[in-house]
Design a binder for these strands. Structure first.
Lengths: 210, 210
DNA sequence: ATCATTTCCCCCTCTTTGGGTTAGTGCAGG
DNA sequence: CCTGCACTAACCCAAAGAGGGGGAAATGAT
């Protein structure tokens, strides 16, 4: 058996039963090897660099430094290691913050064992494993609201405003007069029932018009 | 066999060989039924409402109206139908536009047949199937650049600026003086080597500082 | 032919922006 | 201990922009 080619997996999880359960599962699968298991980030910080894992399974609700806070620190210690979040929570905020902080995947703990093992392989091959429901939430975050009250031009102009451009600059880039841009903005404000740039951007983003 | 409980699948794909291949594959899988196959959106538009599919497999590069343009139109015709994009392309722009236009999943054509069948089931259960590489790109789009030249406060203020708020309003909300906000902005502009709000926002977004 | 959209024009006030420069405080690393 | 860095705040200035009031013509789809 080529132990050198095994995928080295580390687990950071405070619940001993779960931690040992995953370790047993992964350690007994051909092609995988447990590089280390830790009950907290503080615990992991001391040894994880020497243990040199290829993939880390990270719980978000850790005692002390949380998994999300630990993410950028782990990435700094091990820049080439892929980190998969493994948690019971499916909250949008948690998911997006995790992915924003450098997670390569996001699985819920009810994921079947064989899928977890597959996910570990997937990240090493450049994939981004996600539980079905998580994937749907991530996709939904891209979705525009198809029933916008704004016309195409209005939407276009509001998008430009959201990039911080001045009305004059928008006018120049769209090859229309400044007065036209002002007219559109007046209509946008009226439709969204707002009276400022910031409120219009917020209203539009909340409703996914832009 | 309970034909009524089968998942009804429609395929919109101009290449006849591929279209019939998928139709054969899906039609011969227990629990699935082909509701209709079409060579173009124009073709589909006439009959797809009567055919009433639960899931549509949609090719992006169709003759005439492209798959991406077809997406919102299909959603309008069949609001409760899940649409999975099936294409050879893995371009970021194509992926994000597809998801933004209402796709529930994005698979590449080299996906194994059994995974395509599984993806069809997944969308009906609220999932968001994606090919591994696509998922990674989607996740990467959330990722912040950890090596930002900006300090925490500067990043925070730049984020506020990106929402369209005025300096005065930012100052009030952060409980600091307007002059302090101005100082931070001057430092942000210097660090990013820009001389305007719009350029700062663009530079920061391009580099994923915000 | 009509309606929504897009375009353009005038008026007005007040706020905001960008730039230059200096400087106090507090905190962490060498 | 001392040097940087981050955060805070202050003063100066001219120019540009934002927001709101009114109206009106051209374009375009269906």
């Amino acid at each position: 058996m080529q132990r050198d080619l095994d995928i080295r997996v580390a687990i950071i999880e405070d619940d001993e039963t779960i931690r040992e359960g995953y370790a047993f599962l992964i350690g007994n699968t051909t092609g995988y090897k447990i590089a280390g298991t830790y009950a907290s980030f503080e615990d992991a910080a001391k040894k994880i660099v020497q243990d040199d894992p290829d993939v880390i399974l990270l719980d978000v609700e850790l005692p002390g430094i949380s998994g999300i806070e630990a993410l950028p620190k782990l990435k700094k210690l091990l820049p080439d290691t892929h980190i998969i979040i493994l948690t019971v929570y499916e909250q949008e905020m948690l998911i997006f913050r995790s992915l924003g902080n450098g997670a390569a995947g996001y699985l819920t703990k009810n994921t079947q064992p064989e899928k977890i093992v597959a996910a570990i392989k997937e990240v090493t091959e450049g994939g981004g494993p996600m539980s079905a429901h998580v994937a749907r939430m991530v996709i939904s975050s891209f979705k525009r609201n198809e029933s916008t009250p704004l016309t195409r031009r209005e939407t276009e102009i509001l998008e430009q405003i959201a990039t911080g451009k001045s009305r004059k600059r928008i006018a120049d880039e769209l090859f229309i007069d400044l007065e036209t841009v002002k007219s559109h903005i007046k209509n946008i404000y009226y439709k969204l029932d707002v009276h400022s740039k910031a409120d219009a951007i917020k209203a539009a983003k909340d409703n996914k018009f832009i």
